[in-house]
Design a protein around this nucleic acid. Structure first.
Lengths: 385, 385
DNA sequence: CCGGCCGACGTAAACGTTTTCTTCCGTTCA
DNA sequence: TGAACGGAAGAAAACGTTTACGTCGGCCGG
């Protein structure tokens, strides 16, 4: 069943059918009605391959992530899928698992399928595989601030805002000794987060202790190892900020293993606000980067870059069945590249610093607490200030 | 740059180029060499849309999952992606979020893109949207044992094996009172797991206590609520099996909230062995269903169903660059639909039952323990049998 | 009242492949 | 030696659209 059947049933030419389903405004309403009737009667769906072949646009968007099993990415993928589908696009997902060879295969897959754009959310460095996209005139966006290249653009994440909120939150609670576990510093986004942290520290008059600036690798194990390093130091910070949530969860494990409590012994802040952060024990205070903003910005960026007038294109679905109406506001054409906002989500891993708690305990009316020890036992049941 | 450029450079017809890159064996080796040389020189990639249009095969496989942010699915997606790419296919992912309306949109997307097959991994009931696939002659597979339909097949998961291992593991430890938190019983896979549990119980001479058979919903919150119900009962089981890992993690939270220890107070077994199970506190004993088996079986099933001879098709990539060679063994054509195996992964959430521990404590040489209470305090630091 | 113009619809070409059919050449057998 | 056959390469049709172009009709202005 193809466009010819529809044309025959509606007693028009195939050109008119094509124009109708593409919402060309010059079609006579009476004819259009006949066409739509035929379309619905036959349950006609246009052949996307043929469309793509002749129009030159596949309406396919590539999304390359570094590790789909890292909980941050599924949430991004979900938003991305919605952003794409609501605009009549389909998403091709590639997961590189940090391996350059797989990255190359991903790039090849995207090229073969003639994607209309690629979003590279890989926090990675293997960017040279992407030169081919520029050569083919395929736009692509980075989240990592990479050197500018033809056809590419970079999503502006406002790392500072959220981290600043976090540092100030800790400062208000009384923390002066704050550690930071970064991601791999070879990645620019990791570096950006670390620099934002240092700048915040400076801006409130605190000096960073180099011992408390650990380089992690954005994995749970990396976070655990980093925290173990900190615990091996003679002097401890009272709070730890992490470059992502998986690192923070690793820190939670390290503290659990060391029989230390959160937030009584250490305050902890993550980054990303992955779904899971809400469900750790205790729930993780963290900085949220809006996946939705990120996905929408990436999509708009790609579409705008490629075809300035193609935005808000309607699909057959939208018109015929009024399904999947874009629920998110579109960025204005004139200023399409807003920054992606971040903000602090306060949960249960931040509290008063240890020494403040000591004071409270000693001042407490009911009972005298044991002297603070490096390895306090776990008398659960609330010392609430 | 298209096939004509290659043909011109290699001084052959486009038909010969086509035959060469498709590995038609009748091509003269000398000509083939010229063609491959031209292909590499020009960095030629065939246009997938054109290929699909004329051949009728999009080399696109749909994968519909219920919730991409549920950690089980990214792991499945990863395996699926690999299984597909290594066979020269691309994956189109749709996440329904349990909403029938989105399921319908997913189905429509897949139909529009003319997928060669659909894997429905949604554990869901909205199957009637899929009739259209049968009507279009598109094969699809279920993981949920659904009533057989034309063009559809069902993946045979050996639920019994893993659950049996789990129950026996508990029995050997001395557990006689085992609860089971199921998934929504409207889903057949949930029902299968529950029935497998009951059968195992019966086979080792244990009787199920109806109070300890709770229906959950496969979410963390559902697991927490279910465990709270159990804790509200006058008599407690000594071990809990869960229908999936998220439920088990919810149970961990409930027990943490109730100040109870795992595995000292309760043993716990999950199901799925999601990535995260390894990193919960303590690491979760669980039953692994091989995502890889599942993905490979689904792919083979779809390809076999559609085109018995199409299996192990070679792609341009494979031949020209010898990339992405399938590392997994292919199922034999004669018996393509093996069952998907499950097995127990023992970690740290299973141990001797409470009363056995009591005995051990009382018999212990060093010190006398306080009498067992319903809400033991948390003296961390090792009562090791 | 007639000519030109504009707008709507249909015809046909184009998109880049695969695949069928045809052609041509070489080989083999009568 | 010639005819039939087989195999390999080229010519051309086909896939289902979009879109440039042509055509026809109607309307408006001269």
């Amino acid at each position: 069943m193809d466009i010819r059947d529809v044309a025959a049933l509606a007693r028009v030419s195939i050109a008119t059918v094509s124009r109708t389903i593409n919402h060309v405004p010059t079609v006579d309403p009476a004819l259009a009605a006949r066409v739509w009737k035929a379309v619905n009667e036959l349950n006609y769906l246009p052949n996307t391959q043929a469309r793509a072949l002749v129009s030159g646009h596949s309406r396919l968007i590539g999304l390359i992530v570094s590790e789909i099993t890292n909980p941050f990415f599924p949430e991004l993928i979900q938003e991305f899928e919605q952003a794409a589908v609501s605009r009549g696009y389909e998403v091709l997902i590639g997961s590189t698992n940090y391996e350059p060879k797989i990255m190359e295969i991903c790039a090849r897959r995207m090229l073969e399928r003639k994607v209309d754009g690629v979003a590279v959310m890989t926090f990675g460095v293997e960017e040279f595989f992407l030169d081919r996209f520029a050569a083919e005139g395929i736009p692509y966006v980075f989240i990592d601030p990479a050197p500018s290249r033809p056809m590419s653009s970079v999503l502006a994440v406002d790392y500072l805002a959220g981290i600043s909120e976090g540092v100030q939150h800790l400062a208000v609670l009384g923390h002066r000794n704050i550690a930071f576990i970064s991601g791999p510093l070879i990645r620019r986004s990791s570096l950006s987060r670390k620099e934002a942290f240092l700048r915040c520290l400076h801006s409130i008059g605190l000096k960073p202790n180099p011992d408390w600036l650990i380089e992690g690798d954005h994995t749970l194990d990396g976070g655990r190892d980093a925290m173990k390093k900190i615990l091996a130091l003679p002097h401890w910070p009272s709070a730890v900020m992490c470059s992502n949530d998986m690192t923070a969860i690793g820190v939670q494990h390290a503290l659990f293993d060391a029989n230390l409590r959160i937030p009584d012994d250490f305050s902890l802040i993550g980054y990303d606000d992955i779904h899971l952060a809400e469900y750790t024990i205790p729930p993780l205070t963290t900085i949220r980067m809006s996946c939705r903003d990120l996905a929408i910005q990436a999509m708009e960026n790609l579409l705008y870059h490629g075809h300035p007038k193609a935005r808000s294109a309607q699909t057959l679905n939208d018109a015929a069945h009024s399904a999947a109406a874009p629920s998110q506001p579109f960025a204005k054409p004139d200023e399409p590249f807003a920054t992606i906002s971040t903000r602090l989500i306060v949960r249960r891993t931040t509290g008063l610093p240890h020494n403040a708690l000591q004071d409270l305990r000693q001042a407490g009316p009911t009972k005298k607490m044991p002297p603070p020890s490096r390895r306090p036992s776990r008398p659960r049941g609330s010392i609430k200030p």
